[in-house]
Design a protein around this nucleic acid. Structure first.
Length: 122
RNA sequence: CGGGCCGGCCGGACGGCCGCUGCCUGGGGAAGCGUGCAGCGCUUCGGCGUCCGCACGGUGAACCGGGGAGAGGAAAGUCCGGGCUCCACAGGACGCGGUGGUGGGUAACGCCCACCGUCCGAUUCGACGGCUGGACCUUACCCGUCCCGGCCGCCGGAGAAGGAUAGGGAAAGUGCAACAGAAAGCAAACCGCUUCGUCCUCAUCGUUUAGCCGUGAACCCAAGGCGAGCGCGCGCAGCGCCGCUUGCGGCUUCGCACGCCGCGCUCGCCCUGGGCUCGCGGCUAAACGUGGGGGUGAAGUAAGGGUGAAAAGGCGGGGGGGCCUCGGCCCCUUAAUGUAAGAGCCCACCAGCAGCCUGGUGACAGGCUGGCUCGGCAAACCCCACCGGGAGCAAGGCCAAAUAUGGGAGCAGGACUGGUCCGGUCCGCUACGACUCCCGGGUAGGUCGCUCGACUGGCCGAGCAAUCGGCCGGCUAGAUAAAUGGCCGUCACGGCCGCGCGCGAACGCCGUCGUCCUCACGGGCGAGGGUGGCCGCGCGAGGCCGCUACAAAACCCGGCUUACAGGCCGGCCCGCAGG
RNA sequence: GGGCGAUUGGUGAAACGGCUAUCACGCUUUGUUUACACCGAAGAGUUGGGGGUUCGAUUCCCUCAUCGCCCA
C-alpha cells in the first residue's frame, strides 16, 4: 500500500538527542564523498540524519548537499538494511554526483551493518 | 554618422515521471474522550470507582486519493529606520550617542524627490610673455606701428549632457600644522635696504705734533793711529875701548852717537765713537679731514628674503612735452604717481566683506553704494539646532518534562486577577482570596506568536518629482538537523567550431575590349568579366559546451551597501553632413 | 536568526595625525669556529582590500572581506 519511493518525516532524524545517541555509538564508515555514522534503533525502518556544516560553503551549497543525500537515500532505500539510524557528513567541499552516491551509499550502509552485528536486509 | 553620458526593466519557457512542506477536500478509521449496558470492587444499598468487553456519539492519527500553492532582486551584509513584543518610566538638569544646505515626501530614517551653493567636466573666450610670418615706416637695417595670423608657455573667465558633495558655526572659546622657512596667525618681530648718530678697525693721502732710525754738514768731547819735538829709563846689543883668569868681565858715554827700545808730556794730521744743532729720508704714535670694513643706537622701510599644502586675494596698467641750478618746477594728456630712495601708492576689472533695495516659502540670486582686504582644519575638542528609554521573535505567552517547596524581598493595613465608569491611566467602588518579584538551580520537547500587509495589478485624479488620494480587482512561502529537489524531453538564448549559399566596399591576381604615350618592349586611364583569401552582414542546416551568473526566506516591512551570466527598452548633450 | 569584538614582518605584540612604522622570538644569507652552539652583521611589511576627510592616515570616517565570542 505504501508508495515505495516516498520519504516520510518519521524517517528523518530530528532531535539533537537522536544525533547524540548515534555519535555516542561510535560506529562509522566512509569513502571519498561522505562519512556515515550508524546506530541500531529497534524500528522496522531506517532513519536519516544530515550534518552539513558551514565549512562546506554557502547556504546554497549546503542545501545542494542535503538534497543530494536525501535523493540518494530515497532511491537506494530498497537496497539498505533496516533498523539503523544514519548520519551523513560530507567529506569534501565539492558536491558529488548523484550516481556516485547511489553506488556508494548502499555499500557503506551494509558495511556499517556488519560493524553493528546486524543481519543483512531481508 | 562620430563622440560623450544617464536611467529603467528582465533574471529562461513548456512538458513528462519520481519526490518534499503547508493549506483545502473525499475516503480511512488506530489510540484517546463522553454516554449507556454488562462485568468486577467498595457500599451507609442512595450510589461511587474502574482494567477489559459491547453499542452509540462527535473529535479524529497512520495510510490511500483529488485540488491548489511553494525563494530573491538582491532573500545576502546587518549599515540605518520603523511596526510588533517584553521590561522600565512623575518632571527637570547633567551626561552619552546620532544627524546637519533649503523646501518637500514618508510611519520613520543617515533614505527618496526638487532646488541652492562649491568642485570636476568636452569645449570656448580674453589678457600677458616668448618665437615666428606679412604689411607700413626706412636708401637699407634696427626700433616702432598695424594687421592678419600661426605655434608655444602662463594666468584668468565662461561652461553642455552629466558626475561628486558628512555641505551648520572658524567674527564664542580652546587647540593643531612634522620638516623646511625670517615668520604658521592679534600681524609684527628678524635679515636686508635708506638716512642720521656713535664706537672700533683698516687704508691712503694731506696737515700738525712727538718720538725713533738712517744719512749729510758744522761744532764739542773721548779714545786710537801716524809724524815731529822735549824729557825720563841700574832697558838693550854691535863695533869700539878698558881690565885680566885669553875668553870672560866691565863701560850707555863727554868713543861710533843726534844708536835702538820703552815710557811720559806737548803739537799737528788721520780715523773711530759719543753729544748737540740744522737739513733730508724713513718708521712709529696721536689729533683732524677723506674713504673702506665691522659693531651698535634711533628713525624710515614701499625693492627683496630661496621654503612650504598654506605667507593678509587675483590680474593688468600708470603716458608725453618744455625750462633750468639735474633735481625740481611748469604745461598738455590720461582711468591712473608718489617717496629722501625703490610701490601692496594710484587706476581699471574680477573675487571677497558690510549696508541698502529687488526677486524667491527658503537655501540663495541679482543690482546699487561704501570703505576695506579678513587664511586652513570641526570625518580635532567644542558651540548651535534637531532626534534618541532599553532589549530583541533565541522577544514574549501556554502546555509538558526536569530540578533544590534552596536563599532574599513585598503582601490579610488586601498582593495578583477580573468587573464598573465611551476607550486608556490614576483614584474610587466592587467580586474573588494567595500569591508576586529578584538571585540561584533545572530543562532544550510541543504549541501559539506566524503571516492580509505602511501588500499588490489596472484605471482615474493631484503634484515638476519623490509620493499621495479614489475606484475596480488579486491573495502571494511559512520551514525549524530547516521544505521548492532528482532524472529527462522540446524550444528559446549565449559562446565556440567548421560547412554551404547570397550580398557589400576596398585590395591582390589573371584574361578581354576601348583609348593615350612609345619605333617597339612596356606603361597610364576607363569599361566589363573571372578568381583569391580576409573582413562585415544576412540566410540555411549541423556539432559541442553552458540547460546557466550572483545567490536561498527564518517575525514583518521601508531604505542603503555589496555580488551578478546574459539580455531588452528608453532618454540627454556636443560636433559634422544632408533635407 | 540576533547582538558584539578584532585584523600591523613567519609568530606574538607596540604606536600622539608628522623622520626609512618599533620590539622580542623565529627564518634566510653571511662573519667567527675544525664543526656545532653562543655572539656579530645584513635581509624580508602595499599596516586585510577599496574609497573619503586632511598639506599629510597604521591612527579619523564609510564600505567590503576574513576570523573570533555571546544568547533560550
Amino acid at each position: 500500500m505504501t508508495k515505495p519511493l516516498a520519504f516520510r518525516p518519521h524517517e528523518r532524524l530530528r532531535s539533537p538527542r537522536d544525533f547524540r545517541r548515534v555519535y555516542d555509538r561510535r560506529r562509522s564508515v566512509s569513502d571519498v564523498h561522505l562519512i556515515v555514522y550508524g546506530c541500531e534503533n529497534q524500528l522496522p525502518y531506517c532513519r536519516l540524519g544530515l550534518s552539513v556544516s558551514r565549512k562546506v560553503g554557502s547556504a546554497v551549497a549546503r542545501n545542494r548537499f542535503r538534497r543530494l543525500y536525501r535523493e540518494a537515500y530515497r532511491q537506494s532505500r530498497s537496497q539498505l538494511p533496516v533498523g539503523i539510524d544514519l548520519v551523513l557528513i560530507p567529506r569534501s567541499s565539492q558536491p558529488p554526483e548523484l550516481a556516485a552516491l547511489l553506488d556508494g551509499l548502499p555499500r557503506l550502509v551494509k558495511q556499517l551493518a556488519r560493524k553493528l552485528n546486524l543481519k543483512a536486509s531481508p
